[in-house]
């Protein structure tokens, strides 16, 4: 899985007040590891307002991300939420989607990262896997689950 997903970029059972709070929290480990600039967070929040990323899977998922210029070193962080948070629907901003899992993507070269992006999509399409991720008690559990798909 390369170095894009790491245990210290996975946070479980988080309590946030809204979708923007969720994005900021998900970004924290990436900021601490110098993967993104500070501006990344506001840019990802702004982008989420205009081009939302909520997906209406059985367990709702959001894939916030933003422009490559805010990415210093590519990385992906994963956040699971204690409380369901409403994101707007991808391609349909009027749709409210209850989300429990957030994959924050700090990607600057999607062609190079295609495999990991496709893996995330494979996971999203697998309801059992989403359930396991949502119910995971430790970041390491999620890390090991995701690893089996790579």
């Amino acid at each position: 899985m390369g170095s894009l997903i790491q245990v210290d970029r996975i946070q479980v059972n988080c309590l946030v007040k809204d979708q923007f709070d969720a994005i900021a929290l998900a970004a924290k480990p990436l900021l601490e590891k110098d993967c993104i600039t500070e501006e990344f967070i506001d840019a990802a929040i702004e982008r989420e307002r205009i081009f939302p990323t909520g997906l209406p899977t059985k367990i709702g998922v959001a894939l916030p991300h933003t422009e490559a210029k805010y990415v210093l070193k590519e990385g992906i962080s994963i956040l699971t939420l204690k409380n369901t948070i409403v994101f707007a629907g991808m391609g349909n901003p009027k749709e409210s989607i209850p989300v429990q899992i957030v994959f924050l993507l700090a990607i600057s070269n999607p062609e190079k990262q295609l495999r990991i992006l496709q893996t995330i999509i494979t996971i999203i399409q697998n309801e059992k896997m989403l359930k396991k991720i949502r119910d995971a008690k430790e970041p390491l559990d999620i890390y090991n689950l995701v690893k089996t798909f790579l």
Partner: peptide, 14 residues
């Protein structure tokens, strides 16, 4: 097309 032409459109295009 997607918001940033980064992550989702690449997967969809493939």
């Amino acid at each position: 097309a997607c918001g940033t032409a980064l992550a989702t459109s690449t997967v969809v295009a493939k």
